[in-house]
């Protein structure tokens, strides 16, 4: 996108669509107070905006709108096969938001969602009620930032804080908050507890610069992570997705060196390593949305409905990253796909 085009877009969240039923919620009031100049448009159902046909995800990311809505059941979903479940039997995820403030080239959301605009579900208590009901039946491993980077929204809506506080009193839940943000300070006032793992996706700075636009630098992520560990939180390191880009060996090696020079490997809860993989249909949509992305147009191969690197490339990527990580961390802590 050239500079003049950037200037022609409406500022972020210049328009806020609000479901009539969402108006009475506290979180709505909290969010609205931050955008006194936004144009407000009342809607009956968020899908009337979010699910319009023929939307342009990539363009919308440049001029994102907010959609405040009340989520209808279900509030929890079973985790997909392509995701790590870290050995937990009941792996579920939940989405308080649809879409993300960042705009990673490889983000699966652009293949999954019909819109690049951001939906915030304001009825968080309904989510908590469903989690309570499930916990009465069995333990739960719950990913709360599966379809967005929840922590990056924290300045706008305190979802992460609410979820983390909710989990504190539950004995049979393990909650994962995954992020690329450097926004740990937004939740740092909550005393650390064992029901939550804070997981940071770590990428070489070159990957961040070229493929993870708008996300914090490697240095800032590591700094945030270090603070969380010092405060006593369980912290997970995610080298996922590892990308097969030019000079990937040296880029990932340097990134891993920098990581373990900043944080103490012994204090890490665990480390996950995985290569880029995405459902076939999502990639098809992404290729239309991102005609200029070398990552999206990589000649992936099809394996059981999923597009990923050929086996020899996957092995090469994983082996390289694994070896560099294992030089610093206990092998028992390393999960690979």
């Amino acid at each position: 996108m050239n500079k003049s085009a950037n200037n022609a877009f409406t500022p972020k969240y210049a328009h806020i669509y609000i479901e009539k039923s969402a108006k009475s919620y506290d979180l709505t009031t909290h969010i609205m107070a931050q955008f006194p100049h936004a144009t407000i448009i009342e809607i009956d159902n968020y899908k009337h905006v979010f699910s319009r046909p023929r939307q342009q995800f990539a363009l919308q990311k440049e001029a994102a709108k907010l959609i405040l809505a009340v989520k209808k059941p279900p509030f929890l979903y079973k985790g997909a096969e392509v995701c790590h479940d870290f050995g937990y039997k009941h792996f579920y995820y939940t989405s308080s938001t649809l879409n993300c403030v960042y705009n990673c080239d490889y983000c699966f959301l652009q293949g999954m969602f019909p819109s690049g605009h951001v939906v915030l579900f304001v009825n968080i208590e309904d989510y908590f009620n469903e989690v309570e009901a499930v916990l009465a039946q069995h333990p739960l491993y719950l990913s709360i930032s599966y379809e967005a980077d929840l922590l990056s929204f924290e300045h706008m809506v305190p979802f992460a804080k609410r979820w983390i506080s909710f989990a504190e009193s539950k004995r049979n839940i393990m909650m994962e908050l995954r992020t690329k943000s450097a926004n740990y300070k937004a939740i740092s006032s909550i005393p650390a507890h064992d029901q939550v793992i804070l997981a940071w996706t770590i990428s070489p700075q070159e990957v961040i610069t070229n493929h993870e636009p708008k996300t914090p630098t490697l240095k800032a992520r590591l700094h945030s992570m270090k603070q969380a560990m010092e405060d006593g939180w369980k912290v997970r390191l995610c080298f996922d997705p590892v990308l097969h880009i030019e000079h990937f060996e040296s880029l990932y090696r340097e990134c891993i060196e920098q990581t373990f020079a900043t944080i103490n490997a012994d204090q890490i809860e665990d480390i996950s390593i995985g290569v880029f993989r995405i459902p076939k249909d999502y990639l098809k949509t992404m290729r239309k949305q991102r005609p200029d992305s070398a990552l999206v147009h990589y000649p992936y191969i099809h394996q059981n409905g999923v597009m990923t690197y050929p086996d020899e490339i996957t092995k090469k990527c994983i082996d390289n990253v694994y070896a560099a990580v294992a030089a610093h961390a206990d092998k028992d802590k390393i999960f690979t796909e």
């Binding site: 022609a8 877009f9 409406t10 448009i41 009956d44 319009r52 001029a63």
Partner: peptide, 10 residues
């Protein structure tokens, strides 16, 4: 029935 043009330009 309501329709929503997507106003992305300033």
């Amino acid at each position: 029935r309501a329709f929503y043009p997507d106003i992305l330009f300033q």
